[in-house]
Design a protein around this nucleic acid. Structure first.
Length: 712
DNA sequence: TTAAGCGAAGTATAGACAGCATGTC
DNA sequence: CTATACTTCGCTTAA
């Protein structure tokens, strides 16, 4: 295939040239060139399907800027991950010298000054945009160009439905969709009323192979049929050492945390400590947001140039490891799929340690990972500017499936993108969201809306009326001439919980006596919006110590029981957390990492708030009060008496407790006794604390001015 | 009698998004 | 819809 590179001197876009030159770009790569040829700069609606790291972001930048210049209005850039939102936000910031203002919003972070109506380009996540639409801020009407990044997430069973519902709305206006390589890009672009660009061009050549044990060594068969032998005890170790001896860096993917840690540990035995690495490992030992055990484990590995990486790690630890790898100090990272999506972290060699995965929803069931997921991993191979080629090796434990695996991952098309809106909870949520965003409408109009999704006609036939009736039965909507949301339905749409979560909460609380904190936490952790955790290392005797009435009865079904236990484990953890149990104690008691704790706290913070709002709309006042109080404690992990003190920036559960124990018990106490506060917290921190406390007291009720201007 | 050795049987398995403010002149 | 690594269990054998 012949590839064309457009010289930027030929670009009819003077402002862009300056910015591109500053980045050292003189030529546009083939997908970029092709996008421009298909009318990117003339506002044509496009779907770009091309491999990881093939320069799609630049296509988005050019599309956004030329759109703003010609049409005005606003541009929204949507990503599936908060980390990507942050990354793209900084990329777009580089265009601010041209006079465009760039803002960002996600559940985690909002741009400040004057909120979003004053920005030209807004970077956000799919969920946040979906939620914004339900609230109908006036400025959203001004958005006339949507950039949908990582559109292939549409295929993800849990997150895909939101991507699809955002796409349905976005396709009525200007649109640019970016996706990894997909097989049915023609169908997708037809659905989005767009032209397509599909290439397999990569900035660095990729060599792919499959490896299996053969005699006393391992045989790698590459895609072009050539072979290579490597020696060693373990196949992953053997290939890793081979690559490093050739000057490479290696990214190993494994399908469980335990394997990732185990492989990292055994690899570390092969390397020596260096001065540079000792500094990095020292940084790890001193990182603030991680538990003692995990810091110690990781620092022992990092001083030998090896690290593991998974979602149990705290953010701080993950950042140090990623940086250490980018700076080429760390030679090998052994990771779970966290690193396959998300922020770009390329390596010369990618080793795919397992091509199967366990399905939590079907106990004991292993399945081969989708080709798409393999491509996400292998796409990390080869660093532009450093490696002349990248290599990606699949490891098999025996020869049996070699031909099948070789054929599936190396020579076949990726799976087509298909609608995942057919699942009950996704579909009902979609109907609810539509009624919230577009207001009441006839049943027929609602159906017309559903017909704009990727769902097949047969699916719509079998799901639509059932869905409407379900929402009616559970009091989310009422239907007269039109279908419209009840107060309860609107509230559920606004707080953005799944309708099944709302039903669980409603059925649990309605007319029931109040119960203990643990019971509320367990009920919320049992909803589909809560994470699912493994319960293997949980001390089940804890279950028998519970002396208050649970809202949820113990189920009989095996799968339900594992969800029940998962909820129980989360409830115990969060209960310890709000009873101020020491963090390291929690981590070792439940066998979790600091990243896990952070995730659970984040989820339960949101869910306790949601429970509080649902109780409020149900007018269940006792439950409402219990949940409100619970919510104030979950975010910061404190008993109720410390809630006031942890409002102060820089004061968390530990410092607040220190102050309390010395009789500093309120914001007023902090301001009245500055000397004592400085003695307890130290000069510098004490000063800041007093200052912040005074600011909070002074601020009173009038907060910053920001807000939506509602469509009447 | 106890410890060690060994094979059979049992056990567990990735990740990460969402609210909060929100009528006034 | 079934692989792997690791742990635990239970038996046999050696000291």
């Amino acid at each position: 295939m012949e590839y064309t590179f457009l010289d930027i001197e030929q670009l009819q876009f003077p402002e862009a040239k300056t910015i591109l030159k500053k980045r050292g770009i003189t030529k546009l790569n083939p997908p970029q060139t092709e996008a421009i040829r298909k009318g990117l700069l003339d506002g044509k609606r496009l779907v770009i399907a091309s491999p990881t790291a093939s320069g799609k972001t630049l296509i988005a930048e050019l599309g956004a800027i030329s759109h703003l210049k010609k049409e005005g209005g606003k541009v929204i850039y949507v990503t599936p991950l908060r980390a990507l939102t942050t990354e793209k936000y900084s990329t777009f910031k580089e265009w601010e010298p041209l006079g465009f203002r760039v803002g960002m919003t996600s559940g985690e972070y909002d741009s400040e000054d004057n909120y979003l109506k004053n920005y030209d380009i807004i970077v956000t996540t799919y969920e946040k945009l979906d939620s914004l639409w339900r609230h109908r801020p006036g400025w959203l009407e001004e958005v006339n160009y949507f950039i949908l990044d990582e559109l292939h997430y549409l295929n993800d069973p849990s997150r895909g439905p939101v991507v699809e519902s955002v796409a349905v709305r976005a396709k009525r206006r200007g649109l640019l969709a970016l996706s990894a390589t997909i097989s049915n890009y023609q169908e997708i672009s037809r659905w989005l009323h767009a032209e397509y660009v599909s290439t397999s061009w990569r900035p660095v050549k990729l060599v792919e192979g499959v490896m299996y044990p053969s005699g006393k060594s391992y045989l790698v068969t590459f895609k072009d049929g050539t072979t290579k032998r490597v020696k060693g005890d373990d196949p992953i170790e053997a290939y890793t050492l081979d690559s490093i001896s050739r000057g490479g860096q290696v990214l190993v993917f494994r399908n469980s945390r335990r394997y990732a840690e185990g492989t990292a540990k055994s690899l570390s035995g092969k390397f020596k400590e260096t001065q540079e690495l000792l500094e990095l490992s020292k940084e790890i030992e001193e990182v603030e947001d991680a538990g003692a055990t995990e810091r110690e484990n990781l620092s022992l590995l990092v001083r030998r140039g090896v690290a593991y990486h998974h979602a149990g790690l705290s953010r701080g630890l993950r950042e140090i490891i990623e940086r250490g790898f980018k700076e080429r100090k760390i030679k090998v990272i052994v990771a779970t799929p966290t690193l396959a999506a998300g922020v770009n972290l390329p390596a010369r060699t990618v080793i795919v340690g397992d091509v199967f995965r366990y399905n939590r929803k079907v106990t004991g069931f292993r399945e081969e990972i989708p080709v798409m997921e393999y491509k996400q991993m292998s796409g990390r191979a080869g660093r532009p500017g450093f490696d002349s080629e990248g290599e990606s090796i699949i490891v098999l434990r025996d020869k049996r499936n070699f031909e099948k695996i070789f054929e599936k991952y190396l020579t076949s098309d990726v799976e087509p993108i298909e609608s995942k809106l057919g699942a009950e909870n996704a579909f009902y949520s979609f109907l609810l969201g539509t009624l919230s965003a577009d207001g009441e409408m006839t049943r027929n109009a609602l159906r017309t809306y559903v017909e704009e999704t990727l769902l097949s006609d047969e699916m719509i036939d079998s799901h639509f009326d059932k869905g409407v009736e379900w929402l009616k039965d559970h009091e989310f909507i009422i239907e007269e001439d039109t279908v419209k949301l009840t107060q309860f339905g609107k509230k559920v749409a606004d707080i953005y919980v799944n309708p099944f979560t709302a039903v669980t909460v409603k059925d649990s609380l309605k007319g029931k006596a109040p119960s203990c904190d643990l019971a509320y936490l367990h009920m919320l952790a049992y909803t589909p919006d809560a994470p699912i955790v493994g319960t293997s290392n949980m001390d089940e005797s804890l279950l028998y110590d519970v002396d208050c009435k649970m809202f949820i009865d113990e189920p009989f079904d095996e799968l339900e029981m594992s969800l029940y236990l998962s909820a129980m484990k989360i409830a115990f953890i969060i209960h310890d957390w709000i009873e101020e149990v020491d963090e390291d104690t929690i981590l070792s008691r439940y066998g979790i990492g600091s990243g896990d704790l952070r995730n659970m706290v984040e989820s339960m913070d949101w869910l306790t708030y949601s429970g509080y709002m649902i109780a409020q709309v149900m007018k269940e006042e006792t439950h409402e009060e219990s949940l409100r109080r619970l919510n104030t404690r979950v975010k910061d992990g404190v008993k109720e008496e410390l809630v006031e003190l942890v409002q102060i920036p820089g004061i968390g559960r530990k410092r607040a407790r220190q102050l309390w124990n010395e009789d500093i018990r309120s914001l007023a106490d902090v301001v009245m006794e500055p000397e004592k506060v400085k003695r307890i917290l130290g000069e510098k921190l004490g000063e800041r604390t007093v200052h912040e406390a005074a600011r909070i007291l002074g601020k009173g009720n009038h907060g910053e001015e920001r807000g939506y201007d509602y469509i009447p």
